[in-house]
Amino acid sequence: MRFLLALFLFAAPAWAVLPDERLADPALEARARALSKELRCVVCHNESIDDSNATLARDIRIVLRERLAAGDSDGQAKAYLVARYGDFVLLRPPVRADTYLLWFGPFALLALGGAVAFAAQRRRKPAAPAPLTPEEQARLAALLREEPK
């Protein structure tokens, strides 16, 4: 990635979303903005093309707007870029067999954790007398007395 950044430094600096890029049709422009937030600037460090000031990001913003103006749906415009840059260009990874773990993992984890917590709750038995020596008990009691209810 450091290598990519080095490449990026050789590109002339530009700015994220410039006035001259924008489409006249506000609805189309809004779609383009929303889409560009989900597309990665491939030469940057985890930036969307909407945020990035890399020249390549600007070029891709322009291409994206051309596709939308030509009548592409959001999906078609994305597919156009995926065909060139691969899934790497999507900040929202596609839901596929090899990303099920990513997309459903969190909720599986929640369910699993919930089940473990539930099982632990059911198993919880009255405590065996704490294995404390009388001195420790006294000290603990002293500590707890300090605490206002």
């Binding site: 985890n46 899934d87 900040l91 993992g105």
Partner: peptide
């Protein structure tokens, strides 16, 4: 915690299989 860990490591995990994906804010 698990979700953030998964999202952070998943691209590396895929990279090991020669697949490049990005996990960004929309995820």
């Amino acid at each position: 915690t698990g979700t953030v860990l998964l999202g952070t490591l998943y691209p590396l995990f895929m990279d090991a299989f020669g697949l490049k994906i990005s996990v960004g804010p929309p995820f």
